[in-house]
């Protein structure tokens, strides 16, 4: 296995991890704000905050891992993406800052300023939209190479239907993933009123998620035919993804096995996400940059891989401890600790 392939697999896995944990987090913030409007606050807020408080920093680290890792393995991405993403990424930083400070200020500080909770909820929807723009840009067609370096054509970007379908998918996926997770979490906590509300949200957002995902494949056909074709070669991965989706919706519908439903959901997104990633290979920025052009030297690649393995050996037991104490400790989950 070449270094670029190892690097890409590791980074894609971290990005996938971020998509899942951040979706849970983003969506939870939105549901929290929404419940304030509809007066269902007493039902939802407790469950949501109980889960979010101890793990929020962990979520952010997944993102940092991804961008530090990609600069390490593929330093050219710093040049290409760094030059064009000033504005979109700056906006994302500000939104992340609002979220991060919300946890600090609300959870450890004083209870509940409504305006802040709304802002926080709103960032949960705008952030996936602003971050997913990077994926859209990587599809090509929006970046021009000039003498002064790469240049992003904002008009082309924002007038493209592909951009907006990816934005819509990112938002619906966030709400769906989050609702399914929180249904399971509320159920474990024995909070059946919250479970009921969250289960309804999960069912509401299931169909839009699949429909918009299909929409993107359709858009890609005209936007980047080459990518579309390699995507079609992996049709079986998408088929598996859809089967997983159907089963998890069925379990939620039948009000049973919420835990299995969430695991199936991870499977569903994993298959779709990796199929998308594999079909994109080897392009980091179509058609300007491939993993082969962009990869770092052998010495750095080896030392990053060694550091990564050593780091995992340190982190996996620690994460296990965290999960055991907060996520899988029934007494904690139900609020008795």
């Amino acid at each position: 296995m070449s270094y670029e392939l190892i690097g890409m697999v590791v980074l894609w896995t971290f990005l996938f991890g971020y998509v899942i944990v951040a979706s849970v987090d983003f969506g939870a913030g939105f549901f929290n704000a929404y419940s304030l409007i509809t007066g269902k606050q007493h039902i939802l807020t407790k469950v949501i905050q109980r889960y979010l408080s101890p793990v929020w920093e962990v979520t952010n680290v997944f993102l940092v891992f991804f961008f530090v890792g990609i600069i390490g393995f593929f330093p050219s991405t710093a040049y290409y993406y760094g030059s064009i993403l000033l504005i979109p990424v700056s906006i994302s930083i500000i939104l992340l800052a609002i979220r991060g400070s919300y946890y600090a200020f609300e959870t450890y500080g004083n209870k509940g300023h409504r305006g802040y909770a709304f802002m926080y909820g709103a960032t949960g929807l705008i952030l996936p939209a602003s971050l997913s723009v990077v994926l859209t840009i990587s599809e090509g067609g929006f970046v021009e190479m000039t003498d002064n370096g790469p240049f992003l054509d904002y008009w082309a970007l924002f007038s493209s239907p592909l951009t907006w379908s990816i934005v819509v998918l990112s938002v619906t996926a966030v709400l769906y993933i989050s609702a399914v997770f929180l249904t399971w979490y509320a159920n474990r906590a024995g909070d059946f009123e919250a479970t009921k509300v969250l289960r309804r949200y999960a069912l509401i957002w299931a169909l839009p998620t699949i429909v918009t995902a299909g929409g993107i494949v359709y858009e890609l056909r005209s936007h980047n035919p080459e990518h579309f074709e390699s995507l079609m070669n992996l049709w079986w991965m998408f088929a598996i993804s859809i089967v997983f989706f159907l089963f998890s919706v069925w379990f939620i519908w039948k009000k049973k096995n919420y835990g299995v439903a969430f695991i199936l959901l991870i499977g569903q997104f994993a298959f779709a996400f990796y199929a998308y990633g594999i079909s994109k290979y080897p392009y980091l920025l179509y058609p300007h940059l491939t993993v082969h052009d962009g990869v770092t030297n052998d010495a750095m690649a080896i030392s990053l891989i060694v550091a990564f393995v050593a780091g995992l050996l340190l982190l996996i037991p620690s994460l296990y401890l965290l999960m055991r104490l907060f996520l899988f400790d029934d007494k904690y989950v139900s609020g008795k600790k």
Partner: peptide, 10 residues
Amino acid sequence: MELAGHVIAL
């Protein structure tokens, strides 16, 4: 960062 990424990313 492109230059540094090659040497000091670790």
